[in-house]
Each structure stands twice: as C-alpha cells, then as structure tokens.
Write a protein that binds this DNA or RNA. Structure first.
Length: 559
RNA sequence: GCGCCCAUAGCUCAGAGGAUAGAGCAGCUGCCUUCUAAGCAGUUGGUCGCAGGUUCGAUUCCUGCUGGGCGCGCCA
C-alpha cells in the first residue's frame, strides 16, 4: 500500500536526520499520513514534523525542513513536497501511483481490500443471543447486522473469526418455566379446558400457534400426562421450536452462526460450578447474608455481585462467568460481545469477573448498540409489547427486503440511536441510500454490457496504457478506490462496521460523478481513453461489489 | 439518586488531536436526440449545547454544568 511506503520513508528520514544530528528525539512518536480534505494540500499529508516538534525543541516547520533534507522517495513516484500551514508535510505524487492502484484491484479481484492486519488472531463474536421463548425483535436485527458485518470486516482484515449465538436456555430459569407453562395452558385450552392464562405468562399469538401445531401433530396424548413431566416436555419442545424459528429468520437475513452455544450445556457439564469454584480458589468470593458474592469492586465494578442466591441457585452472572471462561479456554484471543443498551450495566461485572479469573479484561470487548425506533409516515411505530402492535424482525425483512434492512441497520454508529424510516427503505429513489449504491453498480454493469454488445474487446489489465486517466473525476474515483483496504482495517480495529455502508455511499458518489463527466463508449471517445476508462470502470465494479458483499447486500447487474 | 449513550446546517446524521467542519434530505436554479435522470452540477444554510482544563493545535481528549434517550433486581 502506498501509504505504508510513505510512512516508512518518513520514519527513515527522521532516523537519518537524527543520526546526522539534525534532529533530536528519544523515540519516534506515532504520526499519521492522510489524504487531506483539500486536494490542494497534495495527495497525502503527514503530521510528523508537528508531533516531533516538542521533542526536537524546534518549531514544526524547521523540523519539517530537516526531515525533507533526509527524505528519499523514488523520482518516478514523487512529484514534489511542500511544507504547509503549521508544519504539515504535503506530498504530491505522480499519477502513476493511481494507475498502479487500478492494476492492483484487477490483479486482486475479490480479494481486493483484504489484508493480514489481524495476523490470524482468533476472535469470537457473540451476538443476538435472544432468549429461546419468543420471536426476534427489531433490536435483535440491529445487533445481528452489527455483529455479522463486524465479523466480515474482521475476517477481511486478517482475523480468524467465529460467530456465536448464546442460547439462554437454562432450564431452571423462571422465564423458561413460565414459557413452558404458557405453552401447556394454550395446549389444554385447545381441548376446551377452562384454565385461566397466567398473568405473567407469554401472551403472544405464536404460543397459541405452536400449541395448535402440537395438537395437530400429537393429538391429545399429553392430556393425561403427569403435570411435572408435561411441563418439562413442553418447555423443551417450545425451546427447540423457538431456536429453530430464530435460526430461520436470521438465515433469511443473511446471518449464519458458526456455533449455537447453549447455557444449559454449561450446567450439564458442571462448568457453572467450576467457574464459581475457580473464583473461590483465587480468593475472589465471600459469603454474606446466605449468598456467595464476587468481589468485583476489586476490579473496577461499583458494587460486589451475587454469584449464588440465598436459595442456592446460581445467578445469571455465574453462568456468564462460566461462559466467558469457556470462550477463553477454547483458545480465542479476543472476545467480542454485542449487547443491547439494557445490558450496559453488565460490562463492568463481566470484565471484572474475567480479571478475577486472571484473564486480561482488555481482551474482552463489549459493544453496546443504542435503541432502534421504527418510523412510518413520519411517526414512531412499535408502541410496545403490551399493546401487541410490535413489529417482528421477520415482518420488517418481509416489508423492506433484506438488502434495505441490512443497509439501514448499519447506517448509524452503534453509539447513536437509530431511526429506521420504513417508507424510505422501500422507496425506489435516490433518497434511498441502498438504491443509490446499488444503482452505481448496475450502471457499471450496463457499461460493460454495452461494450460487449458493441464488440469492444475488454483488454487485459497489463495491456492497457492507463496514462490517459487524469481528469479530476477519474483521479478522485481512483483515490477513493485506493482507500478501501485502509477503511476495512479502520473499521476492524475500531469495531465500527457502520464505516462500510458509508464508504459504499462515498464510492458510489464518486462513480456517479465520473459517469456524468467521463463518457466511456460514446461517440468520439479516443480508443486509448476508452480502454483506460474501461479498466477504471471494472476496478470500480470490483471494489463496489466487494464492499457490498461485506455488508451482505446484493450487487445487481440491472435495475 | 447512580450508570451508559447522545447533543454538529431547518431535518437525519458523518467526522481516530490537525489546515477553510462534511454528506443526504428539505428549499431555490440548471442539465436527458449521447454508456440506465434510481444520475449530475450550482446555490442557500453553522457561536460544533454551555463553562473551564490539557495541547504547538480541541468538534474530537479530561472535568463540571444544561438538555434529551435508555437502563439500574439474589430477573434473564
């Protein structure tokens, strides 16, 4: 990558200036080489002189001067260098670097954008993790897409990624029992039994539907069963059905998990108790008021937390300790948990519990995404579960389609609330960002199709002279293409998948401008220009398709 | 009361400590006998919530306020 070449050259210049006693500093500070906002400031701009100024005890511009005297870059790459503003080193490159970008994209094809930054480090991302007693909701959709695309981005940046869904199916949990009871009552009601439905039961239609399916399949055979056995059986049947339902909806949404990890397995293998014991052995727990507590305040939590209740049952935290410990024991270097906003209070205790077990809490990254609001006709919908007018994730996907749903869920930073405009998502207009981006791809495909129809041969990349590419629209398009690998690395390192749709929009915009200004196949275009532009158009197609694939959105050939 | 997130153009939001703070929408004005007008161009619009601090440099980092969203169980 060109940027790395420049960074290395500047670092070397600093070392040589230092060796020649032209510059003093202890260690070379972090510095950046960036594409400046204003094109007049060159192709790239470095802040090295400014960050070096205080150590060198000289004004930034003088430091820059000293650096330039020792800077060496190939003549066929570097056009000129300028010191500007408070001490920026602005590098103006010859167009050949841009032509090399186009060639590189052709050579790499589907691999363009990928890098080895992650060095194969093993990452486990856990997300969605809905309870197996109901349908997936809109917030689950946001978590699903953030997790799925973050994983794709990490994989592209050279990490070894696993996607995991944690199933909160502990049989002892009161919510699972309540769910099982609700299902039993609905089943009995199907046979005309007049049983009152429990106030704190699961009122949703889906429970009734499933009870009917059990009746249709198995008839009345559960009517005479001992109540305790029946409850356990129905709880399990209901759980399996819910998991399967959730799995299907997510698969329809393009989200597939490598593993579905069950909380119940932690109990089955006694790992919950082992986790508690491990903490006790390390002296991190104590007994008080009949409960067992984790001394999480030692590791930055604001209170100590109960691990085992007065009634002897472990808390949710106890399973979570066992679960995270299990993840580390499976050999993952980095753990990522993606949680909804209602879980923010659990960050400190989760990290504290891992620290108490001797794991570096820095290896656990917990991402909290903020609330989603659906809007229709300019008004908020989804009044709440009680009213029953809640929109399910499956319904949303049906209404707006997978592409729009994925793109919209990813459009905002996880830290921001998300207002999901249902009307806009289905609009076939340029206001709709997903159409805007897909349309750019379709336009490219159309050009290539037309070339074929006209009998214009598509030459091999190595055979084409790219030097005719020099117009402003061409240059800024190539620059944008060149940024793609870095953009993926940034998104991966900051855990910010929302950078991908944003990049896609920026790239689409550059292409539309190019399309408007630079005819490819029209009458009167010089064949050399035409061929060079064809190569650029193909490079844009490759890159656009690659970013859309990362987001999980289709790249249509026609619209 | 405590915690998390947010506060940037009329609206929805970007902006990893850098130069003149950006995009889309909305408003106004133009561009299709020419590769897809689902597009492009021009133009209007800002005390980056307020007050301090750190820094050569703060929309960005820190502290304190103000306003809004969400949450705060030996529930999961």
């Amino acid at each position: 990558m060109i940027k790395q070449v420049l960074i290395d050259a500047l670092a070397k210049a600093a070392q040589q200036a230092h060796a020649a006693n032209a510059l003093t500093y202890e260690t070379l500070p972090e510095f950046t080489v960036e594409r400046p906002a204003n094109a007049a400031f060159g192709d790239f701009s470095a802040n090295l002189a400014m960050v070096l100024a205080s150590a060198a005890k000289r004004p930034p511009r003088q430091v820059a001067q000293a650096l330039l005297e020792h800077l060496s870059l190939p003549d066929d790459l570097l056009e000129r260098v300028e010191i500007a503003g408070p001490g920026f080193i602005n590098l103006y490159l010859k167009p050949v670097w841009l032509h090399e970008v186009v060639q590189e994209i052709h050579r790499q094809g589907e691999a363009y954008g990928r890098s080895q930054r992650g060095q194969g480090k093993k990452v486990l991302a856990e997300f969605v993790s809905a309870n197996p007693n109901g349908p997936l909701s809109i917030p689950h959709g946001r978590g699903a897409i953030i997790g799925d695309v973050l994983c794709s981005v990490l994989a592209a940046a050279g990490f070894a990624v696993s996607r995991e869904f944690y199933v909160n199916d502990a049989a002892t949990s009161s919510q699972m029992v309540r769910f099982g009871e609700s299902l039993v009552v609905r089943y009995l009601q199907e046979f005309g039994k007049e049983i009152e439905f429990p106030e704190d039961g699961y009122h949703g239609e889906y429970v009734i539907d499933f009870a009917r399916r059990i009746k249709a399949r198995d008839g009345d055979r559960y009517l005479q069963m001992p109540a305790a056995d029946r409850l356990e059986l129905f709880t399990n049947m209901g759980k399996d059905a819910m998991i399967e339902w959730q799995r299907e909806v997510l698969a329809n949404f393009g989200v597939e998990f490598d593993t579905w990890f069950r909380e119940s397995a932690l109990f089955k293998n006694n790992e919950v108790q082992k986790g508690i014991d491990a903490l006790a052995e390390r002296g991190e727990t104590y007994q008080s008021e009949g409960a067992t507590w984790l001394a999480s305040t030692k590791y930055g939590d604001d209170k100590d937390r109960p691990l085992v209740r007065t009634n002897g049952k472990p808390t949710y935290l106890a399973s979570d300790v066992a679960y995270h410990r299990n993840k580390f024991e499976r050999g993952f270097d980095i753990l990522i948990d993606i949680w909804g906003p209602d879980h923010h209070g659990y960050i400190a205790r989760t990290k504290a519990s891992m620290a108490a077990l001797g794991y570096d809490p820095e290896r656990v990254h917990i991402l909290i995404y903020q609330v989603v609001r659906l809007m229709r006709n300019g008004e908020f919908v989804m009044g709440g579960k009680r009213k029953g007018d809640i929109i399910l994730l499956s319904e949303l996907i049906e209404q707006v389609g997978k592409d729009a749903a994925r793109f919209f869920f990813l459009l905002r930073s996880s830290d921001s609330d998300l207002n999901f405009d249902l009307d806009l998502a289905v609009q076939e207009s340029p206001d709709n960002p997903v159409y805007y981006v897909q349309y750019a791809h379709a336009r490219i495909a159309s050009i290539l199709r037309t070339a074929e129809e006209k009998g214009v041969a598509l030459p091999e990349i190595g055979e084409v002279d790219l030097s005719p590419l020099g117009e402003e629209a061409e240059i800024s398009l190539i620059r944008r293409l060149a940024e793609f690998p870095e953009e993926i690395i940034t998104a991966a390192e900051l855990y910010e998948p929302h950078r991908m749709p944003r990049y896609a929009q920026d790239l689409a915009r550059e292409f539309h401008v190019f399309y408007d200004r630079c005819p490819v196949l029209k009458e009167g275009v010089d064949p050399h220009v035409r061929d060079a532009r064809l190569m650029l158009v193909r490079a844009a197609k490759i890159t656009l398709r690659n970013v859309l694939t990362l987001i999980g959105v289709s790249a249509p050939e026609r619209m």
